[in-house]
Design a binder for these strands. Sequence first.
DNA 1: TCAAGTGTACTAGTTTACATAGTACAGTTG
DNA 2: CAACTGTACTATGTAAACTAGTACACTTGA
Lengths: 127, 127
Amino acid sequence: MYQIDVMSRIPVYEQIVEQTEKFILAGVLCAGDKIPSVRSLSVELSVNPNTIQKAVAELDRRGLIFSVPGKGSFVSERARDALTAAKRGNLGVMRDKLREFKMAGIDKSEVLEVVEEVYGEENRADD
Amino acid sequence: MYQIDVMSRIPVYEQIVEQTEKFILAGVLCAGDKIPSVRSLSVELSVNPNTIQKAVAELDRRGLIFSVPGKGSFVSERARDALTAAKRGNLGVMRDKLREFKMAGIDKSEVLEVVEEVYGEENRADD
DNA sequence: TCAAGTGTACTAGTTTACATAGTACAGTTG
DNA sequence: CAACTGTACTATGTAAACTAGTACACTTGA
């Protein structure tokens, strides 16, 4: 399930957080689902339990999961909504990046090409 | 000229690199222009000379400036082209971010809104 | 000529974030 | 009751970033 790159410049605990978010968005993990335990993930990924726990604590802090001592950690009901809100906040970051692209002389058409590539080109008049 | 935030999570030398790139793109620094000396920037920003030197070395490595021992460092002729190429490579990063937006249920229209905000809406038929 | 400014190259030390190692405690479950 | 769970704590190692200080060779202007 999880894929960790220990050579990456991105901290391991952060990789786990990011991948968990992707699993939630992709529907691999749904509200109420139990995520792997700290110790089992520790063994599976060959990573120290403390590192996993750090990721769990961060996911909890973001309201994506809730932990029950003795039982496990579970995907929150409002996880998807929280993620959507967070990503919408990231549109501001994209705005800054687009300004850099424009300054660098990258054409609007080049940007739109990427947008169309990701979002498809369903531009029929009867939509 | 330069504005450094020592409390930022972004390393100081990287902030200097980024700001120098922006100055080049904005036309504040043009090909052949001399950039501030290591020691003068060190005093102006209250930063260790070694930190400045690290930024200078990185800018040199990226082909944005060239250094002449005893004289100073100057903006390269191909600095703008190098920056445009680098930013164009960043379109791939934007593609990944757009995929995340799409997965999170952020509408195509919301994305296009930001694009139009930055690039303007010059969509006349006679262009 | 020479003092001042320039890029560059070292060594040494501190601080911080990240990760590991080991131990411990309390709650849950079959 | 044994095995699992989340959580907390101390200690240690490592790497990156930054600071401090020194040194050398080159260029420039007075």
